[in-house]
Design a protein around this nucleic acid. Sequence first.
DNA 1: GACTACATTAGACACAGTCCAAGTCAAGAT
DNA 2: ATCTTGACTTGGACTGTGTCTAATGTAGTC
Lengths: 141, 141
Amino acid sequence: MSDLLERLRGRGFRLTAQRRVVAEVLDGDHVHYTADEVLARATARLPEISRATVYNTLGELVALGEVLEVSTDGRAKRYDPNAHSAHQHLVCSRCGSIRDVRPEGDLLSTLPEGERFGFRVSGAEVTYRGICPDCAERRGK
Amino acid sequence: MSDLLERLRGRGFRLTAQRRVVAEVLDGDHVHYTADEVLARATARLPEISRATVYNTLGELVALGEVLEVSTDGRAKRYDPNAHSAHQHLVCSRCGSIRDVRPEGDLLSTLPEGERFGFRVSGAEVTYRGICPDCAERRGK
DNA sequence: GACTACATTAGACACAGTCCAAGTCAAGAT
DNA sequence: ATCTTGACTTGGACTGTGTCTAATGTAGTC
């Protein structure tokens, strides 16, 4: 994520303190924060940062393909910095925690021609659902 | 969908005019209305029906497993009456229209053990994306 | 160091959905 | 057929998530 700021500048974006802290917050594996979580973490480092700027910056990063937008629950969108390696998501049905996963095989090929309704099909996203180890332990069964 | 009302009554639900019109609106293949679209169509048949009742009824139908909740775009949830036959969704990236589709093969088996992070995995949803015939024709390429 | 176009800010606004107190009514009891 | 009652419906207030705007600030260039 560190060279992300360089890539931004290369595309004509100004390097501001706000963009830097948003990029810093979105660093790591299995990171899937909501915009408000990003705002909270960014505020800890740069108290004056505003909500609008966080939304703006997240939108820019998504448009540039540096960050993925994920909506696994119909509530707030989540932002996934792991955009340069194709992956899907495994979500805990109890606590909502998310892991990045790599299925095997070609997803697109699972949709037969007779089920394509004339669409030019170009992509597929999978959300696997289950119970995470923590929840399984805490609530048994 | 017609016997749905009987099933509801069998489960102790009162048969009201409001529930009837919501059930009627949610009838057909490839139907995926938002709550507001359901409200609009229900209002055409029963002008006094309220937004809260539409949301209540949709929630009941979902809880009973008679209707599926689908969120393909992070905006309003959509309601899919085709709940008794397993299927996935094919969504047009331009106009958002949705078709019900049946992939072949077992989705769960595409996630290798080493990618399960200790989760007990129980389900998977796929959203295929592409361009529908109408949009392909209208906007070329 | 000054300039200026791009970026940030606070707050108003919009949309999707939930909650509540009061009134209404379906369906069983009589 | 009417009564009774608890479930159902209603309108409106409220919450959470996200967008827009006008005014102000500032990164990068000269």
